[in-house]
Write a protein that binds this DNA or RNA. Sequence first.
DNA 1: TATGAATGAGGATTCATTCAT
DNA 2: TATGAATGAATCCTCATTCAT
Lengths: 209, 209, 209, 209
Amino acid sequence: MGTKERRAREKAARKEQVLQAAREVFAWKGFEGATVEEIAARAELSKGAVYLYFRSKEEIFLSMWRSTVDFFVEQAEQALNLTGGLVARFAALLDVYIGLLRLYPDFIEAILNWKHGDLKEKVSAETYEAVVVRCLHVHASLLKVLEDGMREGLFRRVDAPSFITMILGAFNGVLLMLKNPEHQKMALRSQDEVYSFMRDYFLTTLLVK
Amino acid sequence: MGTKERRAREKAARKEQVLQAAREVFAWKGFEGATVEEIAARAELSKGAVYLYFRSKEEIFLSMWRSTVDFFVEQAEQALNLTGGLVARFAALLDVYIGLLRLYPDFIEAILNWKHGDLKEKVSAETYEAVVVRCLHVHASLLKVLEDGMREGLFRRVDAPSFITMILGAFNGVLLMLKNPEHQKMALRSQDEVYSFMRDYFLTTLLVK
Amino acid sequence: MGTKERRAREKAARKEQVLQAAREVFAWKGFEGATVEEIAARAELSKGAVYLYFRSKEEIFLSMWRSTVDFFVEQAEQALNLTGGLVARFAALLDVYIGLLRLYPDFIEAILNWKHGDLKEKVSAETYEAVVVRCLHVHASLLKVLEDGMREGLFRRVDAPSFITMILGAFNGVLLMLKNPEHQKMALRSQDEVYSFMRDYFLTTLLVK
Amino acid sequence: MGTKERRAREKAARKEQVLQAAREVFAWKGFEGATVEEIAARAELSKGAVYLYFRSKEEIFLSMWRSTVDFFVEQAEQALNLTGGLVARFAALLDVYIGLLRLYPDFIEAILNWKHGDLKEKVSAETYEAVVVRCLHVHASLLKVLEDGMREGLFRRVDAPSFITMILGAFNGVLLMLKNPEHQKMALRSQDEVYSFMRDYFLTTLLVK
DNA sequence: TATGAATGAGGATTCATTCAT
DNA sequence: TATGAATGAATCCTCATTCAT
């Protein structure tokens, strides 16, 4: 029935509304610093209403993480479907990740900083699994391109899993360093400059001369 | 006067005592999770006494950070005084940092995760400045070796500040990724394996063939 | 009009439906622990619908109490109509009450445990009065049998109102004691054993030798 | 040292202060209805201070229970040490219990009504055990007198554990019935009248003619 | 210098009840 | 009549910091 559909649509819209508000608040304050009260206010809802859509603060956070990874995965798929060689595709993947870091730097910082106890009781298994599956997917995609490239003799032979961990860690770590106000005062290069540098460095050094 | 000296010595000892305890507690629980109560208990002091030596929880934390960087700087100096070429010295610096990550992984994680508001009121300017100065020093040391190496034609020409940020960020980022329980489930390599890989990778790719 | 009747019938049916669900939920969780949400779900109705039939959670509870007493009164009437002497009838009344305690132990526990503020605003006068009237009725029935028995010289002469209060209190009190988990660990006899014992004890001691 | 002793004394006094306040609040509102805030206010302390002395609301409650049973046990000992026959001693025990019901009717009502989940995390094992042990002690005392009396041929032979459960249940149950405002309107006898009646009834019927 | 008792603001979560549709 | 989304008051507990002794 039309009513049911509308309800479902509205429900989804409200969830999105909360998620939108949450992304901002989490980005500003981090997970610990954010309060459900503030998220609700920002979503123009009551505190109670938020709990109609999400089981807990943790579930809100994880849902956002999920949608963020979804966003990345989607763009990554496009990058992988590019015509062009493996090198171009690998570069495209890096660019997608860099784009993500540029788009949601604060929220990704919040993710990296998130510390939590047992989520079993706080978070629906579905949301949790969704995040884990998507992250695995990202790793797998990167791994595949890398190994293909090595097999074809385009890339220098390295331990692929280590290499991927290094790359992701490097981008994340730089994000964190440069976002930290204390670090900022020491930094001699802007985030963008460092990201560009890293992109070039990893690509150049990976290619067989 | 002798008394004064003794007093000063005792005060320093007490501070050290608190710092020692704090390092453990912060490492286990992170900044938010740690309580002054627990730090005091572990230092075998009363809560009130802790506040005789430190203005706030934040100041304790920052003091620890300071002493950690001190520790690094000290070892770095030794590495830099090594006879041997610039390459060996650069490698030694990396090893010192890796050693630090292995020695205090949890505490460094806590540092990386630290999110704070305005420290002006919470922290004495002296402590704050000390940390910043020391961190700058570390950067400067790395920068110098790197630039010397490039000038001598040993290292490939890269943007040194970016390179340093990348390296430090990479090690930090990998630490964080691999410590995160969610990430751990995806990780295919151990922390040590990845650190070794990174050491080799950065050294190899930096050297002029 | 037929429609009106049907409406009335349906309304009664719905109320019964809610009451049925409520009895289970209150029995499991007690008054405080039960939620209107759960009652509604169990009655396959929406929360809002429940409030069409009952003014408040308290009114649901009181209605259940009323229907429980109704149930008892009905059975008590049958017991009283038994041919057989006053002794048999008194015994039958006890058995009816014991039967009730066995049938709805948890719900009766919930009734006994119910603590509430002012009901005036929460409960319709009608429901409230109904419960009081019915409870009075039960008392009156017991009282009559007892007094008749004493007049006929079958029962020992005792203060009938006190005796009745004692008996009802005793059964209720034992129910409560034996349902309490802490008490259970101390109890040496099962509920049924104690009920049987009490039935015998009261009957035996009441009878003139 | 004097200071230490004073501290200990003051600590005990404060605990007692909280307990005193708590007894009143719990008596008025029951366990669920009482708030820690109100208890604290009544004890002229801050909310936080209450938690210096008690781990949780549950622990406050259980501590009160404990002290109540202590009070009873103490008086029961005196009753048992009375010269006079077993009958007098049994009567004295009943009187002690009746005295308790008269002294703390509301609080004992709160105990009887207390419903709780798992206490393991909320309550110190010591407090918990203390209550259980004391309650067992009360049961054992009653049991012993009763069995002694039966052995000596003073009391009618009955199943002692059932009898005790019945008696305690009866007094508790009557307390509950007569305290309930709804029940009160139906009651034809006062609490005291019923207690007296029960005392006589149980004693009379227990004695061998 | 040291103690530890006291404070009180702060926050996640629940749930009876209302109301627009 | 029926729905279920929305509300918001209510409550337990934590912990950094202060202060009388």
